[in-house]
């Protein structure tokens, strides 16, 4: 097993575990009383679908890690895994932005008690490492990378 494959496997595994953890936390938030403050920051209030998506992203990344160890196509799975991570982070960020707008700009009645922590989840800052890893993973395809078109 090559040096770089080793490294890639480690990174994929680390990210994968992070997403699994986030997914589990989100699931937990469904049942745990939201007044437990730390939970507020670690999850977005118990959205089951989001939990599943986070778990699944973790699965893809762990899959990539496994494949790096076997030497079969790890890069492809890492690339897609990172794209998923970015996608999820983006969706959550935009939802947060929307809620913030409703709360602060419009003062909607549904959002009177809302605070940033309600919608915040670690998936948002995770976008940064995901992007970094994605760009480096894409390099292995660079020689035949499809360029922007359409």
């Amino acid at each position: 097993m090559t040096e770089s494959n080793n490294k890639s496997a480690l990174i994929s595994a680390a990210m994968g575990l992070a997403f699994i953890a986030m997914g589990l936390l989100e699931m937990a938030a469904v049942v745990i009383d939201p007044s437990v403050e730390i939970m507020l920051y670690l999850s977005s209030g118990g959205n089951i679908l989001l939990a599943l998506v986070l778990l699944f992203t973790g699965v893809v990344l762990l899959n990539a890690a496994m494949r790096f160890r076997n030497g079969t196509d790890g890069e492809a799975f890492l690339v897609v895994g990172c794209m998923l991570a970015l996608f999820v982070g983006l969706v959550v960020s935009l939802t947060l932005a929307a809620s913030a707008t409703e709360a602060y700009l419009f003062g909607s009645e549904d959002f009177v008690d809302w605070s940033l922590a309600d919608d915040f989840t670690p998936a948002i800052p995770m976008m940064i490492p995901s992007l970094a890893v994605l760009l480096s993973a894409l390099r292995s395809f660079r020689s035949t990378a499809q360029e922007p078109a359409a």
């Binding site: 196509d73 492809a76 395809f141 020689s143 035949t144 990378a145 499809q146």
Partner: peptide, 12 residues
């Protein structure tokens, strides 16, 4: 055509 990114993504 060497390894293409598009095809790789499709595999996943």
């Amino acid at each position: 055509e060497k390894r293409s990114l598009s095809d790789a993504i499709d595999r996943v």
